[in-house]
């Protein structure tokens, strides 16, 4: 007997979870908006201290990784297992590249004495302290999401190789993809808010 399949229901469950994630990051964006309205000039000065080049490169990396995940779904629907495996591997590598960039970015800032609780921030302008506090919290939470997304894509990759994800049954890959795209969506907003404040 064929077990009952409810792919639509499984995706709906994933979407419902994504809504809670939207509210999680949304709350932090509200915090950003309120303090931006109070300390606009400090936020603009803080934004100029972040490396636009790193930010732009990471944006491109995440956009390419989203394409790779979407393409891996198209490939598996066409029963092109090899292509799907290659796309998924590329997406995971993009995630790793993103984290490596983030590591260099953070360690550079920490080296300059800019980290939560550092003397530079505590005894400096309050707006500057809040800007970098939000920077570490929001990009840090986003980084954790990248790690979780990479783990989910890794499981999807394993399932694809083992033949558990196929053209007829690939809802796990779709849900992992939805999560990954949402993490990309958050970065699309984080990038201009932190790196491009004029």
């Amino acid at each position: 007997m064929k077990p009952a399949m409810d792919d639509r229901g499984k995706r709906l469950g994933m979407w419902l979870f994504l809504y809670t994630e939207v509210m999680l990051f949304g709350g932090l964006f509200v915090l950003y908006a309120v303090y931006f309205s109070m300390y606009a000039s400090d936020f603009m000065a803080g934004g100029k201290e972040l490396d636009r080049f790193f930010g732009t490169v990471n944006t491109v990396i995440l956009l390419v990784s989203s394409l790779a995940v979407a393409a891996s779904i198209t490939a598996v629907q066409r029963n092109e297992k090899r292509a799907s495996v290659v796309w998924l591997t590329a997406a995971i590598l993009c995630g790793a590249l993103f984290l490596i960039n983030k590591y260099f970015e953070w360690s550079h800032k920490i080296h300059e004495g800019i980290y939560p609780g550092s003397d530079d921030l505590i005894y400096g302008e309050p707006g500057r302290n809040i800007f970098f506090g939000l920077y570490y919290i929001i990009t840090g939470l986003h980084g954790i999401h990248i790690v979780i997304g990479m783990a989910l894509l890794g499981v999807a990759l394993l399932f694809t190789i083992k033949g558990r994800i196929t053209g007829d049954n690939h809802v796990f890959l779709e849900n992992a993809g939805l999560y990954w795209h949402l993490v990309d969506l958050f970065w699309i907003f984080i990038f201009p808010l932190f790196y491009l404040v004029l």
């Binding site: 989203s66 394409l67 995940v69 979407a70 993809g177 939805l178 795209h181 949402l182 990309d184 969506l185 699309i188 907003f189």
Partner: peptide, 10 residues
């Protein structure tokens, strides 16, 4: 950009 991701990737 978010709308494009939602429409075509998701």
């Amino acid at each position: 950009k978010a709308s494009l991701v939602l429409l075509f990737f998701m």
